[in-house]
Design a protein around this nucleic acid. Structure first.
Lengths: 204, 204
DNA sequence: CAGCTGTTATCACCTGGTACTAATTTAGTA
DNA sequence: TACTAAATTAGTACCAGGTGATAACAGCTG
């Protein structure tokens, strides 16, 4: 057996890779039944392909998700709030990373930029519960992978003791403005028919 | 030993919970050394507390992250597009789940609802690259955990052979409108200074 | 003292493997 | 055809990290 026609092995190994890729929870036993080869062959194949055993695969996945939970994009506030004067103004920083961009072009997806601004607008309102009621937004220029977005929020009006506040948010990359939004935020004071959006999250 | 002074057990179990909580990758062996009790006691404690063994914990984490990858909130299109007539209209469904709501109240965070609408507005535009330029949005009422958001997008105008399209999106839960947005989308045709937001994602 | 809780110790067993050795099958060529 | 080498299968010992059952012991308490 020199070189020709040893495809079946290659093919099987490709299949094996694919199977494990799209269901990493398969045991060797299940795989040997699916691929109609002995369990030893499966193990040899994994060895050659550098695919770790089930438990290691599962552990790796868990570790990855454990790490990423610590910096999860859509839980709590998007972006790090670095300055906050309640009912007045606030500043947050948000770095555009792999998971935020469209892979073909490296341009940030709009909702991330929006989410940073929205989070900040909500955080700056000094209330137990604050929800976005409406917003008028503009993406001035596209934001690329690796760029740091600095969002600055200014409360422009707070209606008396009651329910609405207006917040303007401007997001910059360096000197350039990339986004602007005018938000109307509902506050908890005196209304039960809350209107949407985001609640107040921790302010650390 | 009636009731008084059996605190050490309770305390130990609390500590155990805490330890496992903030490092789920600990074996019973490591825990027994840390807490200075036998490994059997650790196992009994886990049993009483309903804490599964290391491998189960790790597997659960992996499964959670695996599930959420399949329906990842901010990658690709948010929501399932169930109908699409390019340059005309589109419909998508998005179910509000645990990871989309503010845990204290079960109210959906605004950017998810926005993200669904934004994704759909972009998807409905028949162009290689489409980016959100601006939007005017309103959260009509808050959306709760478990509710299914049906977003309907209508292209209201496409400016000649050139760069802008207007898309109106209305999102409903049952009969009720919960969100409305008017989007201006930039299209790839004839402009390099693209303006932000979201690119065109797969349409399946 | 009996009885109870709590703790520790053993022992058999389980899953999903690794590591190694050996036999068997298959295919290709001298 | 016989030889050779790769590929596959089989079997064994061993491992981590457990479960489950059973037993023994300590210490207090009524």
């Amino acid at each position: 057996m020199r070189t020709i026609e040893r495809l079946p092995k290659r093919q099987r190994q490709q299949q094996l890779s694919r199977l494990i890729e799209d269901n990493p929870f398969m045991t060797d036993r299940e795989l040997n039944r699916l691929l109609k080869v002995s369990i030893q062959t499966i193990r040899l194949d994994r060895l050659e392909l550098g695919i770790p055993e089930l438990r290691e695969r599962v552990k790796l996945m868990a570790e990855r998700s454990y790490d990423s939970v610590r910096s999860l994009p859509l839980h709590e506030v998007i972006g790090d709030i670095i300055d906050l004067q309640l009912d007045k103004s606030g500043i947050s920083i948000f770095e555009i990373r792999e998971e935020h961009v469209f892979s073909r072009t490296g341009i940030a997806r709009g909702h991330h930029v929006f989410a940073q601004a929205n989070s900040l607008a909500v955080a700056v309102i000094n209330d137990e519960i604050a929800l976005t009621a409406s917003a008028d937004i503009r993406f001035v220029r596209s934001v690329a992978l690796g760029e740091k977005c600095i969002a600055k929020a200014y409360v422009s009006s707070i209606s008396g003791g009651s329910s609405k506040a207006k917040v303007d948010v401007f997001t910059y990359v360096g000197e350039e403005m990339v986004f602007q939004g005018h938000f109307v935020i509902y506050r908890s004071a005196g209304d039960e028919k809350l209107e949407g959006g985001d609640e107040h999250a921790d302010r650390n």
